[in-house]
Design a protein around this nucleic acid. Structure first.
Length: 189
DNA sequence: ATATCGATTATCT
DNA sequence: GATAATCGATATG
């Protein structure tokens, strides 16, 4: 699923339609994955992961940031994909406003949605608003779509920012895409 | 360009 | 009471 989500669109019905392409994701494997929120079993926080696939699992981290996941496994299993970076396409002014970014040059584009906390802020994603919503239907106001685009080369690396099971190659990104997060970690491979 | 650090809160032990 | 699937500011080379 992580591989298949690369190149798809994430859309949000805000004041305008916010639209951006998924360029970086990470897979979290559920009960068997020590780095996954589902590793300890079902709790109030992670219950969406154990529900049907195609729903948004939104969690709050470091006292500051929301992150968006797509629940992927059938009911009862808890695998998911963390959306880590997007390439903005439409609604860029609204994203910049949400992020508090002043757009001086095109280089400021990467500040909008390059990173899981950043893209959540740009898309007005919060746990109270979006956790458990149906990402397969525009009716939810936050959804995904396929516009026919297919990524070129896909690169696979270890996941970023975790301490447990940090060696598994479960981070997928579109090679050479400028909006991939963690340039420090990814630029040199 | 790279390194370090503080912010701030839900969650689990 | 410790820690976390992060980010931005600041310091240093």
């Amino acid at each position: 699923m992580a591989r298949d989500l690369l190149g798809k669109l994430l859309l949000r019905c805000g004041e305008e339609i916010l639209c951006a392409r998924i360029v970086e994701v990470e897979a979290y494997l559920g009960r068997n994955d020590p780095a996954a929120h589902a590793a300890a079993g079902r709790t109030a926080r992670n219950s969406v992961l154990f529900g049907p696939p195609g729903q948004a699992y939104v969690y709050f981290i470091y006292g500051n940031h929301y992150c968006l996941n797509v629940s992927c496994e059938p009911e009862g299993k808890a695998g998911c994909v963390l959306i880590r970076a997007l390439e903005p396409l439409t609604g860029i002014e609204e994203m910049a406003r949400a992020r508090g970014v002043t757009m001086r040059t095109s280089r400021d584009l990467v500040k909008l949605t390059s990173g899981p906390g950043r893209l959540a802020e740009a898309f007005h994603i919060t746990r109270s608003r979006d956790n458990g919503c149906d990402l397969t239907s525009p009716d939810s106001g936050l959804w995904m779509a396929d516009d026919g685009f297919r990524p070129g080369r896909i690169r696979i690396t270890p996941r970023i920012g975790i301490t447990k099971a940090a060696d598994h190659p479960l981070r997928y990104l579109i090679a050479a895409n400028a909006f991939v997060s963690g340039a420090r970690n990814s630029a040199r491979r």
